[in-house]
Design a protein around this nucleic acid. Structure first.
Lengths: 356, 356
DNA sequence: GTGAAAGCGCTAACAG
DNA sequence: CTGTTAGCGCTTTCAC
């Protein structure tokens, strides 16, 4: 009886199952990993023993022996950002289907947290790394690339022969945003940036500049407000906007949050959107469909991005492809909603006056 | 030269460091885990060898040997929900400080995904489990509690002697919400539920009922709309609301998303918030401060909840406490903003008329 | 204060 | 088809 007690407490090992089934540990192992290599009769015998004992293999031992962890590290700048959360969903679904686990490296916008995840990669706790950061995390002396582990860059591209990129066409879309506003008659623009050091920001701003040039405009035709990818950046931009005499009529925000922030703030001052100012966002977060007015923005294929990125990484891990082969750029979709409209002509009042 | 090449590719093991330092592997191990047990001279010798070789211990081998994984599993219903994301931040910060890693079990609202995480716990890949689910995940025959691992329930309580709860005072706050509206003169209520099967929903609705009773009202004085914790539930509730002849004047939504959803929809029909209907949300997501009007809601101490929950789990893992000792309930804060106001008296029009 | 040696629990040659 | 055996890389008694 005291033995039975022990059972409940002590972990069941493969040797226990082997004894119970009257076979060797090797056979048990085979049944569990490659059933076809074993006679059906033995198979059933073993499975019965597994069931009766409630045996579950110790995965740490498996990992040590096989040198595969079946885990992937995903490094993200900030988890509370819905953009990353959605990408993560795609990643998770793809990895789960191949029974890979996911270890989350949340930097929470603090670079000092990188060290921990560099060590994680270097100490072989994962089989591959997904980077949503736009750069390869480093720990003073050591960089994550030193691990020799397969790495895939998502979200923001990384210039490195060894690292395939799976990104969205930020630059093209940003350029299209300007064209869209320009087609509505806007000639004076505002640009609300994201975190200036972020590669995503750099790409989007570059696209914005491309658009400005394509519209036949110059540096003098727009205003740039800086700040991180958050609501309050838009609010701060609004304060500046409100103080201006010659206000832009078309505003491009590098993320939906800051677009929402500026709209909220200027509306409080009785400035009408889109009549007085048009605003276009970027990302297509779910919330953008619940603002007032609903936000015109570019939808990123985030979930798909997650799936594709994870798929590329798995292929890399399995040796099914070489890193050089892949640079995927997914297109964005313009969601034309209610914060953008034709420019109200500058000389509106004087026109009216002269018409009298 | 070909040897040097090898170096870069082949993993450095503890034996390599030992050889380099001219000591045994045991000594290297001691230096790394408990430096005081070693002569300073030896210590420096070893550290130098570690530095020169770039050695990082293989954590899988450590885990197998020490039987501690230094990982915690966090099971959450859905990662894209900002509430869980914020709790996770707290959890992550707390665990990181104790150099524990975090494995995320994202159910993505699909119960069939539980199985995977049950196995994860049973196969000893983690030292403890944090449950944001309100129930103990199970896999047909096996439940996660069978692992004997320390478990802490957060967000939603779990009735189990072995599982400490770290939750917020949902029920009390829901009750207060009704009192708040009642004090503003509202006597006819609407309740927008969350996922009906969720324990959080059950608690909040119970609190709502408490409040109704405390206000001297009955089942006839409110309307209940059901749906999951998402925007569209609020939109659906709005459709029903719009069809009613005798509309509620005070609406309590079990989450901010559905509050935002209903406000958005009814405003589109020229119904004024809060003049025609007051709406109070629940959770205090960041976004609630950027809606129009800004949403009155209860702020959950989410980050703190995460930290406290993780702390309790770590104490449990270290054997510093027993499960029975802990049931923590954190208070919520009412954020009184612009979607709530005094009821406009029913006989408003007739009053005006008689005043003429 | 340090080294030798015995495993942690599992898988994968290698024989048979 | 199945069993024997040798480790995966590390920590930790137990001697010295």
């Amino acid at each position: 009886m005291s033995r039975k007690r022990w059972r409940a407490v002590k972990e069941i090992r493969i040797a226990d199952v082997a004894r119970l089934a009257g076979v060797s540990t090797a056979t048990v192992s085979r049944v569990l990993s490659d059933p076809d290599k074993v006679r059906p009769k033995t198979h059933d015998l073993v499975m019965e023993a597994v069931r009766r004992s409630g045996y579950i293999p110790n995965s740490t031992a498996q990992k040590l022996r096989t040198r595969r962890t079946m885990n992937v590290l995903v490094v993200a700048p900030r988890l509370t950002n819905p953009v990353f959360a959605e990408i993560l969903r795609g990643v998770d679904d793809e990895l789960t289907e191949s029974s890979y686990g996911i270890i989350i490296g949340n930097l929470d916008n603090r670079r000092e947290r990188e060290a921990r995840y560099v060590d994680l990669a270097l100490s072989r706790q994962v089989d591959g790394v997904l980077l949503l950061t736009g750069y390869v995390p480093a720990n003073g002396t050591r960089s994550m690339s030193g691990s020799g582990l397969p790495i895939v860059a998502m979200c923001a591209a990384i210039q490195d022969q060894k690292i395939p990129n799976v990104v969205v066409q930020d630059r093209e879309a940003s350029s299209r945003a300007v064209a869209f506003l320009s087609d509505l008659g806007h000639r004076k623009f505002g640009y609300i940036s994201g975190t200036p050091s972020s590669i995503i920001e750099v790409e989007r701003f570059q696209g914005f500049l491309d658009g400005i040039a394509a519209a036949g405009l110059s540096d003098n035709d727009f205003m740039r407000w800086e700040g991180p990818f958050v609501f309050s950046t838009g609010v701060a931009a609004a304060e500046s906007f409100l103080r201006m005499k010659e206000r832009p009529t078309g505003i491009f925000a590098a993320c939906d949050e800051s677009a929402i922030g500026i709209i909220k703030r200027v509306r409080a001052e009785r400035i009408r959107v889109p009549q007085d100012v048009s605003v276009i966002g970027f990302d297509g977060i779910e919330f953008a469909d619940y603002t007032e007015p609903t936000l015109t923005t570019f939808r990123q294929p985030l979930y798909e991005l997650g799936r594709v990125g994870a798929d590329v990484l798995l292929k890399l891990i399995r040796g099914e492809m070489k890193a050089e082969d892949w640079n995927i750029r997914l297109p964005l979709t313009l969601l034309e909603r209610d914060t953008t409209g034709p420019v109200l002509h500058k000389d509106y009042k004087s026109l009216r006056r002269s018409a009298l």
